[in-house]
Amino acid sequence: MLDKNGIAKRIAKEVKDGYYVNLGIGIPTLVANYIPAGLNVVLQSENGLLGIGPFPIEGEEDADLINAGKQTITTLPGSAFFDSAMSFGMIRAGKVDLTILGAMEVSENGDIANWKIPGKMVKGMGGAMDLVASAKNIIVAMQHVNRAGESKLLPSCTLPLTGINCVKKIVTEMAVMDVLPNGGFRLLERAPGVSVDQIKNATAGKLIIEGEIPEMVI
């Protein structure tokens, strides 16, 4: 099984040279720590920045310079600022190559639910609905099962949807899967020490297993 950093490390391998990438809050944010040195990658923050730098050195934090999680950050050589309409304009226009975000549920046809649990306080969708409706390539980083031990990979989502037919790939503590255009989670890799049967048992939606499933290389 992978821990959160392991999931982030595996997802970092999906990031290619020249990519513009939007990272969601939580595990996706950790991906930035594992992007291989030497790759030219620009991170987008939907509050209006391309080129997110590391956290500022203590004492140099600036209230006017934050990421979408409201954390103080820095810029990098080549960074650019813009307003929120242009930010979602570039997202909607498909200029951002890869979006990595968390989820509460994903369905076997690529629907995602990650913004609302009925009966609980609803904080809002923020930019998630815009991102999943437009991104060319969406990778979900999440745990395979919820705290109650129930699968988060379902035939269809039970929670209110954030977007439909949009998730391309899922990385969990147990497995890497892609979502096939005609539906179904195709198992691509197992986490170290995890068996295909364990993954099968933790997946409520249709799991497609073709041939030998290799172990992840991280």
Binding site: P54, P56, I57, E58, E61, A63, I66, K70, Q71, T72
Partner: peptide, 9 residues
């Protein structure tokens, strides 16, 4: 500042 995140000097 809502989330003060820094790295040590």
């Amino acid at each position: 500042i809502e989330q003060r995140t820094v790295r040590p000097r």
